[in-house]
């Protein structure tokens, strides 16, 4: 769900850039050098996860997993997802350069929202209930992302309004898929290595 260069007005692009810098700065403050390897490896994992595609006839959709990234990384999702988007735009030509800021906000802000809304449920409830919270986080993050994409398009020009509405509708299947995939991932992690969800605590305290 990348916006390309040239579609948005300068005001929106600049606002996106400023917000992204703020978010990244906040995220980086939660990371000390001890936590860089964890954050880097997880950021690489989310990059790899976005290469997995689910066949949805007649086409296929690739996973985004920003909800899950938010739950695990918290504010650190901002720099982690930014790095992924930067590499994608520079080496794959996906998304644009001037819109890097707004694209980061569109993906990472919903991740942070999912973190605040769903994390306690995922940490404390029984694995099955945690999975439901995970599903909510996954679906919600995509819904919010399409919402913010729609808003940034509409702010750039009324002409995009109809298109933005359709983008939202077209992404409802993606929300459902991301919801199920995130739910299953949360379930497995709760069963196998629940510390993964506690990373944020240790990250923000900066101690082992």
């Amino acid at each position: 769900m990348h916006i390309v260069d040239g579609a948005l007005s300068n005001e929106v692009v600049i606002a996106g850039g400023v917000l992204a810098v703020g978010g990244i700065a906040l995220g980086l403050r939660k990371l000390d050098m001890e936590k860089i390897p964890v954050a880097g490896v997880l950021s690489a994992t989310f990059f790899v996860a976005s290469l997995i595609s689910v066949p949805v006839p007649p086409t296929s959709v690739h996973l985004i997993m920003n909800g899950l990234a938010g739950i695990i990384l918290g504010w650190a999702a901002f720099p982690a997802l930014f790095v992924g988007l930067l590499l994608q735009s520079v080496f794959f030509g996906f998304g644009g350069l001037t819109v890097l800021g707004i694209n980061t906000v569109n993906i990472a802000l919903p991740a942070v929202v999912a973190f605040y809304l769903c994390r306690s449920g995922i940490l404390t409830a029984a694995p099955k209930k945690a999975a439901i919270w995970g599903g909510i986080a996954g679906a919600l993050a995509i819904a919010l992302t399409t919402g913010v994409v729609a808003i940034s398009l509409t702010l750039s020009g009324e002409k995009f309004y109809e298109a933005a509405k359709l983008v939202f509708l077209a992404h409802i299947p993606v929300m459902i898929i991301e919801g199920f995939v995130s739910a299953a991932a949360v379930y497995l992690i709760r069963k196998v290595k629940p510390e993964l969800f506690d990373l944020h605590n240790t990250v923000s305290q900066g101690a082992d």
Partner: peptide, 28 residues
Amino acid sequence: NNIHTYKTFGYLVGMLLVRALERSERIL
């Protein structure tokens, strides 16, 4: 395009994350 696929991909992503965490501990 079915629930089984979503669940399996969810486990795949989850397992990737678990292994990534363990790997990062070894790296550190």
